[in-house]
């Protein structure tokens, strides 16, 4: 394995498999072309990589696979602009560049023994999927697992295969869509409407949340109402990001940087930061 000593140089990785999760989201299973690098690459749930797409630049993407599972590294990507659209056009066998992993992960060790409530909107399930799978692989170490997942419409529900597997493994999966449609008999409404169906024990529950800022605001308010402390409300933030190394400063939240201090933050850490958009 050669280490080039330059943190900005990506390493080539091959796309092993592409899964279409919905019309906007695809999952890419990747492996470094250097087998030794692939074996040596370790990460923790909540961390991200910088992905280079030929001629397309770089974007930060969370790792959605779990380090507890062998095989490739999975990235689930929503088509949001130029780079992500170019990635969506790529197929198995093609090469991307990767550097990382970066960022502070979810505190999975500190969360041992607790009931976990996962709350996701759309692509926000990608970073949380890594934690859910880790918890399932170390099932005895965690309490009840509940997932509240909001999508725009029934057709937008992504990660169908994962959801099915989690249900079978005993994760309480509650789904909702903003707009129902023919054949949809489930919940309609924002993800916050699902809180009526759960009654967590605030003393032993922590929540892991990923979704747009408005969603986070409302979800955090619900969880606070249910008695969870600011320390137990944990989110991961998306920001414009260029270096991933704490230098370019695009991802600032005032004094903090999402790449270096996050992307995982507790609500307690975000309080008082104007750029965290809590109000």
């Amino acid at each position: 394995m050669t280490d080039n000593g330059n943190p900005y140089l990506p390493y080539p990785a091959r796309i092993l498999r592409v899964t279409e999760e919905n019309s906007q989201i695809k999952s890419f299973e990747l492996a470094f072309t250097d087998p030794e690098r692939h074996r040596a690459f370790t990460y923790r749930p909540g961390q991200f990589v910088m992905v280079s797409v030929p001629h397309g630049g770089e974007a930060p993407i969370s790792i959605s696979s779990s380090p507890t599972r062998p095989g490739g590294l999975t990235l689930s990507v929503r088509k949001a602009g130029r780079l992500t659209a170019a990635l969506h056009r790529m197929t198995a066998g093609e090469l991307v560049g990767l550097r990382g992993p970066y960022g502070r992960p979810f505190p999975v060790d500190e969360l041992k023994g607790r009931d976990l409530i996962f709350v996701a909107g759309g692509i926000g399930l990608a970073p949380l999927a890594s934690v859910v799978n880790l918890c399932l692989d170390r099932r005895g170490e965690y309490g009840q697992l509940t997932l509240l997942y909001g999508s725009r419409s029934p057709a937008d529900i992504a990660f169908g295969a994962e959801l099915e597997g989690w249900r079978r493994a005993g994760v309480k999966c509650l789904l909702t869509v903003d707009q129902g449609g023919e054949g949809w008999t489930g919940q309609v409404g924002l993800v916050t409407t699902l809180f009526a169906q759960i009654s967590p024990d605030p003393g032993r529950s922590s929540a892991l949340i990923c979704g747009p800022p408005v969603m986070f605001r409302f979800v955090a308010a619900e969880l606070t109402r249910l008695g969870l402390s600011d320390q137990d409300i944990i989110t991961t933030l998306e920001r414009h990001m260029k270096c991933g190394l704490g230098v370019c400063r695009h991802c600032h939240l005032g004094p903090k940087l999402v790449c270096a201090h996050g992307p995982v933050f507790t609500l307690a850490e975000l309080r008082g930061l104007r750029e965290a958009e809590l109000s």
């Binding site: 949001a80 602009g81 747009p212 920001r239 400063r249 695009h250 600032h252 104007r274 750029e275």
Partner: peptide, 24 residues
């Protein structure tokens, strides 16, 4: 500087354009 794909900007430039430079 902070605008995200899709156009959302967590920093309101009309109000906070210089805040980061001076406070940093």
């Amino acid at each position: 500087f902070t605008r995200l794909a899709g156009g959302h900007n967590p920093v309101d430039a009309s109000r906070d354009q210089l805040r980061q430079r001076f406070l940093h």
